[in-house]
Amino acid sequence: DLRKKIVDLHKSGSSLGAISKRLKVPRSSVQTIVRKYK
């Protein structure tokens, strides 16, 4: 699940930009998912 991957990467200390590059999703999507998770 993409959300879980993003949250896991964020927990392990990756920046939003790094996560978005790695998973090839827009940075804004990463930000939204991380914000919802918090």
Rank of each mutant, 00 (worst) to 15 (best):
K4S: 10
K24S: 07
K11L: 13
G13F: 03
K38V: 13
G13I: 02
D8Q: 13
K11W: 05
K5Y: 10
K4M: 11
S14Q: 14
S28H: 11
V34W: 06
I6M: 04
S29N: 08
S14Y: 15
A18V: 08
R22V: 14
D1G: 12
L9M: 15
S12A: 14
L23F: 07
R3V: 15
V34E: 01
I6H: 00
S14K: 13
L23G: 01
V34A: 02
S15T: 09
S28W: 13
D8Y: 13
T32Y: 13
P26L: 06
R3I: 15
V30Y: 01
V25E: 03
L16F: 10
L9W: 07
L16C: 05
Y37T: 05
S28P: 06
D8W: 14
L9K: 01
Q31S: 12
L23Y: 07
L9N: 01
K4C: 11
A18E: 12
D1V: 13
G17D: 10
K11E: 09
S20Y: 00
K36E: 14
R27H: 07
S12Q: 13
L2I: 12
R35S: 10
R35H: 10
S12M: 12
Q31H: 07
Y37M: 07
R3G: 07
K24T: 05
V7S: 03
D8F: 14
Q31T: 10
K4R: 10
K5P: 04
I33Q: 03
K4P: 02
L23I: 05
Y37K: 04
S12T: 10
S12G: 09
R22A: 15
T32M: 14
K21I: 09
S28I: 07
H10C: 09
K5R: 13
K38A: 13
V34D: 02
G13L: 00
S29K: 15
K4I: 08
L2S: 05
T32W: 13
G17P: 05
T32V: 12
I19R: 01
K5T: 11
R27I: 14
L9V: 01
G17N: 15
V30D: 02
S28R: 13
G13A: 02
I6Y: 03
K21G: 05
H10F: 15
I33G: 01
I33C: 00
A18N: 12
R22W: 10
R35E: 11
D1R: 12
D8H: 11
V30M: 00
S14M: 15
I6L: 00
D8K: 10
S20T: 05
L2H: 04
S14P: 01
L9S: 03
V25S: 03
Y37D: 05
P26C: 15
Q31F: 08
G13P: 01
K4D: 10
T32A: 15
V30Q: 01
S12E: 09
K21W: 06
L2M: 09
S15Y: 02
G13R: 00
D1Q: 11
S12W: 07
R22S: 11
I6G: 01
S15N: 04
D1L: 12
P26S: 10
P26E: 04
V34Q: 02
V34K: 02
V30W: 00
R35N: 10
S29D: 11
S29A: 14
S12Y: 07
S12F: 08
K11A: 09
I33S: 03
S12N: 12
V34S: 02
L23V: 05
L23K: 01
T32I: 14
T32H: 14
K4W: 10
A18I: 06
S12K: 11
K4G: 07
S28D: 07
K21M: 08
Q31W: 10
K36A: 13
Y37H: 08
L16W: 05
S20D: 00
K4V: 06
R22I: 15
R27W: 10
V30F: 01
S14G: 05
S29Q: 12
K21T: 07
K4L: 07
S14H: 15
K5Q: 13
H10W: 15
D1M: 12
L16D: 06
K4N: 09
Y37R: 04
P26N: 07
V30H: 02
I19E: 00
V7A: 07
K24A: 09
G17E: 08
K11V: 11
D1P: 10
L16T: 09
S12L: 13
Q31L: 09
S28N: 08
I6E: 04
S15R: 03
L9C: 10
D1H: 09
I19L: 02
K36Y: 11
S28E: 09
K24V: 05
A18P: 01
T32K: 15
K24Q: 11
S28A: 11
S28M: 06
H10N: 01
R22T: 14
V30T: 00
V30R: 04
Y37P: 04
V7T: 06
G13K: 04
L2W: 10
S20I: 05
K36F: 10
I33P: 01
K38M: 14
I6K: 00
D1E: 11
P26Q: 07
R3H: 12
H10Y: 14
G17A: 14
P26M: 05
L23T: 05
S15M: 03
I19H: 01
K5N: 07
I19D: 00
I6R: 00
H10P: 00
R27Y: 14
R22E: 09
Q31C: 07
D8G: 09
R22H: 13
G13C: 05
V7W: 13
V25H: 01
Y37L: 08
S20R: 02
K21V: 07
V34M: 09
Y37Q: 05
S15F: 02
R27P: 06
H10I: 12
I6F: 02
R35K: 10
L16V: 14
Q31V: 12
L2Y: 08
I33L: 06
K38N: 11
P26H: 10
V34P: 00
S28F: 08
S29E: 13
Q31M: 08
I33M: 04
A18M: 11
K21L: 08
Y37I: 07
L16Y: 13
S29I: 15
K4A: 11
K38W: 12
K36R: 14
H10Q: 03
Y37G: 04
R27Q: 05
K5H: 06
R35D: 10
Q31A: 14
V7G: 03
K5I: 13
K36I: 10
I33F: 04
L2A: 04
S14R: 09
T32R: 15
Y37V: 06
L2T: 06
A18L: 08
V30I: 10
K24P: 00
H10L: 13
H10G: 02
K36M: 12
V34G: 02
R27D: 01
K4E: 09
S20V: 07
K36W: 14
T32Q: 14
V25T: 04
D8N: 09
D1K: 10
I19Y: 00
D8R: 10
S28L: 08
K24M: 08
I6D: 01
R35V: 06
K21N: 08
K11C: 06
R22D: 08
D1F: 12
D1A: 12
R3C: 14
A18K: 06
L16N: 08
I6P: 01
K4H: 10
K38S: 07
V7D: 02
I6W: 03
G17R: 15
R3M: 09
R27E: 05
R22G: 08
R22N: 09
R22P: 02
S29P: 02
L9D: 01
S15A: 05
L9G: 01
V30G: 03
H10M: 10
D1N: 12
K36T: 09
I19F: 01
P26K: 10
L2D: 02
L2K: 07
Y37A: 06
S20K: 01
R3D: 09
L9P: 01
H10S: 04
L16Q: 06
S29Y: 15
H10K: 03
T32F: 11
V30S: 00
L16M: 08
K38P: 05
K36Q: 14
